[in-house]
Amino acid sequence: MGRGRLDLLYLHNPEHGAHGDRSRLLERITQAFTIFEEAAHQGDIAGYGIATWSGFTSGAFTVQDLVTAARRAAGSTRTHLRAIQLPVNLIELTPIAQALHGAGPVAEAAGAGLEVWASAPLSGGELIDLVTSDLAEFIRPGSSQVAATLAVVASTPGLTGALLSASTAAHWQEALNAFQRPAIQLPHLQDICRVLRA
């Protein structure tokens, strides 16, 4: 990669292949975190985290499980565990709805001082076709479907940011503008979640 030090290294989808053996999974996560702690002490990485698609929703692990694993790996309460990454979008709505009530992995990770990154904020582009102009207008009047969709993600309490790709400079600017606008107010976010769950 041409870099002497990585800012953040993710353990990617550790729940895959766990076959329901939660204790074995947590043991494997702790082993990986031990290697990451060593890499951090050697100056190879600044921090590490978990990138998961279904780890939190399936109950494979919790934020507290990860904090505990990191402390065991470090042999201390001072660890290099820095972030979690999980899908947050209008299809994967549960993390947003939970965060609005100070619960779920987004709120728990933020409360533990971790960064929280949303993956797939447009659900791999699927939401571009699913969000109607009427829904976009309800979410944020005057916004495009993409901007309205990203506005909900950007307004999720406790979220650090989102990981997304853009095919053109105009798409990038539209996404950037959506994240730079003021957050959607909490009562309206709750209304949005109610409408989408109906």
Rank of each mutant, 00 (worst) to 15 (best):
A120N: 08
T168G: 01
G161R: 05
L130D: 12
G113E: 07
V152R: 02
A166W: 00
E126W: 13
D129N: 14
A112D: 06
S167L: 12
A147I: 10
V152Y: 03
D129M: 03
L127K: 07
T160C: 07
T168N: 03
W117H: 15
P121C: 01
L135K: 12
G158S: 10
S133E: 15
S144A: 11
S155Q: 06
T149E: 04
I128M: 13
P157Q: 10
L159H: 08
G161F: 02
G111C: 05
G125T: 03
Q145E: 15
A166Y: 00
V152E: 07
W117I: 15
G125Q: 05
P141D: 05
A162K: 00
S143K: 14
G125K: 03
G124Q: 13
G158A: 08
G158W: 06
A147H: 07
A120M: 12
T149P: 10
L114S: 06
W117K: 03
Q145K: 15
L163R: 02
D134L: 09
L159D: 09
V152L: 06
E126P: 00
A154W: 00
P141L: 01
V131E: 09
A147P: 01
P121Q: 00
S133G: 01
W117E: 14
A147V: 11
G124W: 10
L130I: 12
S144Y: 10
G111F: 09
